[in-house]
Simulated scan of single mutants.
Amino acid sequence: MPSNLSQNLSTLASYGNSVADICRRANLNRTQFNRYLAGQSQPSLQTLRRICDFFGIDEHEIFMAPEAFRELVRLRPPVLAARDPATGFAQRLFLNQSKPAAQTGYYQGYLTDPADPSNVYVHLVKVAQSGRGTAVKIIARYPRDQINLPKRLKFEGIATQQAGRLFCVIQESKMRKSTSCIVLSLGDFDNTTTLGGLILGTEPETGNEITTYQTVWRYLGKTPDLRAALKRCGVYPATGAPADLAQ
Score class of each variant (00 low, 15 high):
50 R>V: 12
52 C>M: 12
57 I>C: 15
18 S>N: 08
5 L>G: 05
113 D>M: 00
187 G>N: 01
194 T>W: 00
70 R>T: 06
177 K>W: 04
187 G>H: 00
200 L>Q: 09
7 Q>M: 09
111 L>K: 14
171 Q>K: 07
89 F>L: 11
215 T>Y: 03
180 S>Q: 15
57 I>Q: 11
39 G>H: 02
151 K>E: 13
65 A>K: 08
219 Y>V: 06
51 I>G: 09
161 Q>I: 02
173 S>G: 04
209 E>M: 06
57 I>N: 10
235 V>G: 01
33 F>A: 08
89 F>T: 11
239 T>I: 04
131 G>Q: 10
80 L>S: 01
204 P>E: 07
145 D>K: 13
170 I>W: 04
106 Y>I: 03
122 V>A: 15
67 E>Y: 05
113 D>R: 01
69 F>R: 05
107 Y>P: 00
183 V>L: 06
54 F>D: 11
67 E>H: 07
245 L>T: 10
100 P>R: 07
120 V>N: 09
109 G>A: 14
120 V>L: 15
96 N>I: 08
176 R>W: 01
70 R>I: 00
244 D>F: 02
82 A>R: 07
157 G>F: 06
143 P>W: 00
213 Y>S: 04
15 Y>R: 03
212 T>H: 07
202 T>Q: 08
141 R>M: 02
44 S>W: 03
242 P>S: 06
68 A>M: 03
218 R>F: 00
229 A>Q: 04
86 A>R: 00
125 V>A: 05
59 E>D: 07
